[in-house]
Design a protein around this nucleic acid. Structure first.
Lengths: 329, 329
DNA sequence: CTGTTAGCGCCTTCAG
DNA sequence: CTGAAGGCGCTAACAG
């Protein structure tokens, strides 16, 4: 394990010169740059990122803040896509990543979180699925002490970007297609958690469609819960022509309830998880592609860390029909 | 952002004393230890791991090496359990974690992997599901330059531990219960990938049962693939009384095939994933509890990093009956 | 353009 | 039992 010192000696220059040459500073002559590079090759030198981080106070470290729901398996799929997308892109961009679960920082205030992250060398945070009531996180964003990318939450300032699909439009489209394919003048809409930003956006899309098509609409809070969707379906489905759900998981719950009630109603979901295929169902849904979203989020983080300013990114989505054949392998 | 210096001042002692107190050195009086701890609390001090790593030349960093199968959703569930178990325990033990996917290091030789990890300050690696043919990883283990914990692979030496359940016994038990409940003198056994260590262990358990109960046994390689299990079931199930699968995913494939063939055969799986419940199935399976296994693996890693010597750990398992009611929420 | 000089925050002898 | 001093490997002003 050779150090920068060895390289300096080998190249016959000062340590600082080596540092500058290696970090692409402009004020180094081509000649010495070459000498340094040769020495690096000969000694098989790799800069020690720990020392570098300590000295520059820049660890280039990004925390992935993920909400884990141990009970619902569907969330695993989404979170795993988030993780792998972000981590893969991070490797490509030479960024260091730590995974942090919401449960770890529960009960902390913004200052404590800040201290913790800072002490861990974290400079940027990608927050997945922040809710309206996550006040501590909003505080973190407002303070602007970290570069932040919020996925599926509309936070935006100089050091905060957000990235998501157009939930309003997506919900509109998938509901529209479902209604067009099956007919129907009344819809039971199972919305998400009131706390979630996407909940409102998706609901708006549904309402727009109802307005345009003059469809009567009953909205109920399904809270993204399969169980609740199941109950609501038992209670209301009979009186409506179709059921539109703000998540695949709720769609599964609704579909199962319909099966038990032994009646048919078209159902559509939202997310595009393979779990739906496993549940043996076939229905329209919105394919979000969480892997790609997360890659894009890490990309945006890289831009922020390099000094870019916050902005809002809207990615595209697809309306697809999921079924078991699509997921088996 | 308080540093050790602030703590020292606040507690009225020297920096080095704080360091000793915090790192559990013996030669610090109880009195000063208390003072230091108070100061730490008051200042909300967290030691800077970067500085600590640089100084002590110990980063306490652990890499989680995970094999991601983007196609099969069941694997997401297992991997997520692995990740959260390990990460949660790592936080408690103040270990730093990096997540690395097999795909990242594909094609690298042991030396390259070693350099990469070393340059990242990695001292320990937890390998999940190493196969017999992962020669590079075996090389890594033999060199003993890292502390390694292998999950579900029988690697063991001075700096390598392994942790897993008793697959042989578990397979024996779950198959036994299934046969006892349903009767049957012949079994179709769908085994895992030939490359996997657990494949052989589970098969042995099945063979032991067959021997003891004088059951006729047909073994086929299902490769942990749902699709393959499906095909094999179509081909052989009719001639056998029961189907024992070396994984839940294969059990799902088998069950679906049986449904399509419109015949009944008792099926049992292995793993205890909730996906099985979603697939609308009810069957015996082995509950491994990957979360707990992974926690235990991280624990063992902590022990190795503290100078412990490698060993083999066998955790217990449960035989359970999975169904949809168990997973809905 | 290059070298000198201070640290970054912490750990670790080694005196007191 | 405690404190002072000297780094760990690198970066970042300053001088030259």
């Amino acid at each position: 394990m050779s150090s920068i010192r060895d390289v300096a000696r080998r190249a016959g220059v000062a340590i600082s010169t080596v540092s500058k040459a290696l970090n692409g500073y402009p004020n180094v002559s081509e000649e010495t740059r070459v000498k340094v590079n040769e020495a690096v090759k000969e000694l098989n030198f790799t800069p020690n990122p720990i020392a570098s981080a300590l000295s520059s106070k820049k660890a280039g470290r990004v925390a992935l803040l993920i909400r884990l729901n141990t009970k619902t398996q569907a969330v695993d799929e989404i979170n795993m896509q988030y993780l792998s997308g972000a981590i893969n892109r991070a490797v490509e961009r030479r960024l260091d990543v730590v995974t942090v679960f919401f449960s770890m920082i529960r009960g902390w205030n913004a200052g404590e979180i800040e201290d913790y992250f800072r002490s861990q060398g974290v400079e940027g945070i990608i927050i997945y699925g922040m809710g309206k009531q996550d006040e501590v996180l909003h505080g973190l964003i407002e303070r602007q002490r970290f570069k932040i990318v919020a996925v599926d939450a509309p936070a935006e300032n100089a050091s905060t970007s957000c990235v998501q699909i157009d939930h309003e439009q997506a919900q509109y489209e998938v509901a529209r297609r479902t209604v067009l394919e099956n007919g129907g003048r009344s819809i039971l809409y199972l919305a998400g958690k009131p706390d979630g930003y996407v909940t409102q956006e998706r609901l708006s899309g549904m309402q727009r469609l109802a307005r345009e098509e003059k469809i009567s609409l009953l909205v109920r809070a399904g809270d993204f819960s399969e169980k609740k969707a199941r109950e609501l379906t038992f209670r209301y489905a009979r009186a409506y022509d179709a059921i539109v759900c703000a998540s695949d998981l709720m769609a599964i719950g609704a579909m199962r309830a319909l099966q038990e009630m032994d009646i048919f109603r078209p159902v559509c979901g939202f997310d595009g998880i393979t779990l739906m295929g496993y549940a043996g169902m076939q229905m329209n849904t919105v394919k979000q592609d969480f892997y790609r979203i997360s890659r894009r989020a890490m990309d945006e983080m890289g831009r922020l860390l390099e000094g870019g300013t916050g902005r809002k990114l809207i990615l595209d989505h697809k309306i697809v029909r999921m079924q078991y054949q699509d997921v088996i392998c």
